[in-house]
Design a protein around this nucleic acid. Sequence first.
RNA 1: UGACCCAUGGUGUAACGGUAGCACUACAGAUUUUGGUUCUGUCUGUUAAGGUUCGAAUCCUUAUGGGUCAACCA
Length: 556
Amino acid sequence: MEDSKKTLNFIEEIIEEDIRNGKHGGRVHTRFPPEPNGYLHIGHAKSICLNFGLAVKYKGKANLRFDDTNPVTEDTEYVEAIKTDIRWLGFDWDDREYFASDYFERLFQFALQLIDSGKAYVDDSSSEDIASLKKGPTESGIESPYRNRPPEENRQLFLRMRAGEFPEGSRVLRAKIDMTSPNMHLRDPVLYRILYKEHHRTGNKWCIYPMYDFAHGQCDSIEGITHSICTLEFENHKPLYNWFIRELGIFPSQQYEFARLNLSYTVMSKRKLLKIVNEGLVEGWDDPRMPTIAAFRRKGYTPASIRNFASLVGVAKRDNVIDLSLLEHSVREDLNKIALRKMVVKDPLRLTLTDYNQEGEQVEIENNPEDESSGSRSVNFSRNLYIEREDFMENAPSNFFRLKPGGMVRLKGAYIIICNKVVKDTQGHIVELQCSHIPESRSGSDHSGIKVKSTIHWVEASTSVDVELRLYDRLFSVEDPNSKDDFMQFINPDSLKIEKYAKAEASLMQPEPDQHYQFVRLGYFKSDPDSKSGVPVFNRTVTLKDGWAKSKQKTD
RNA sequence: UGACCCAUGGUGUAACGGUAGCACUACAGAUUUUGGUUCUGUCUGUUAAGGUUCGAAUCCUUAUGGGUCAACCA
């Protein structure tokens, strides 16, 4: 995908070392293993780019495998959404689409193998008893009274568990490892539990389901995954996975852990995102304020910008919180090159050119100054215009370069104008500006010799169309809401601002659904699916960098 | 106070015993018919203390700080 940097991240170093040593014949095979119980977020995007990117870089393969071992939370709705997101990001798994549930029978056989070799037993204890005998990390656990059942009895019991002879929760299958291990995962972990739940793929075929720890590593092994890449919190599980590989004598996939992505001003855990959705603080998983891939897509991010972001953040083992500004930088960089420029006034103020007596005319404005091949377009111009309310200030400070009484600005692509009169209503609100123009300053044939400090955008009044602008801000008002238990307290109440009465140049009446726009001086925008009922709706992908807003903020 | 992991500018990330670099941010300036873009420049860093070495961000020890683990979740 993106050009590889000269320096390698630690996983690439391991892979190149493995290739040099001819490990697995130099084969590189990774996988992305989502659980279909929620939508993918930008943190998953990092993992997707890593796993699929590594396969591309080292001419290997990457599988898509759904870790669907818990039927109570999983659903096909999520399976489809996840596939859509990965494809949108630009990655392909060919026909290598797998499900942990595809391997249920083999996993069951693995369990029997452990039972027969005396390495697993059926435990009749309650979950409370199992938990309490495990003890805490600072003291040894105590062995279960069922721990020394003979293999043959365990086999019969486990078979009967599968046959549905026991009630849910009455028994589990556990590995027989070491109740005194300082690693909690080695204290006879549960391998199978009884669950009378319909599975989204296997239906009612099973009433026992493997635990993640008993499934994940073996699935990797079955698929011949060479480099099993996951996040840091699974580091303590690795000794257990290696124990399974050894006891079962199966393909030795090797796990490597990297630090998950955290983004400032947002949360990344599925649990927290689900809560935000369920409590109605956003419209849904693809609400553009969410950090999900679906939300970024709807907001107007490009796959390339997210891939580039993933490469900018790097891969390491240190906990991190990435500046939101890096993501924004990445999308601006991409959009600047491809977004068609349009003029839209979000908060319109009437402006009349009192000395402009023509019917009106067409002015020619470039579609993208960064891309000559994008050409130009004709824009209607007349004596009746709208400009941005905030581009006028009655008592302006000296560093305000836009319109002020007696001041001059250029109307983008048209004339230099002078503000002569401010018209107010009875309450003193400004309702109109009366200006005159300098005919010889017309863009393209300017021989006025006048230099102005500022160029502002505008739209012609009679041909303008009404559009709705949805302006987004960070979801949280604090930089690291993840660190707060009561993270919901820090939701930004102003994360969405809707401009219902924006005026746009006529061409935006029928926006191209896939086109990215830059509304000059306002930011990058993309049409929203809500646009159907006559009024076009645009999501602001990201603002433009704004030196003026920044300097204003400082003096406030 | 058990085990495992981590520690480089404001934020990320390089440097593999030999000049601490890159990106983002911030700041300053130039250019600009978007206070955008582009260009130039500036600020800020090896957690601490010992050791090994001609030489340590890098190796060792200890301390300190942070993270993960005690679901029949993944």
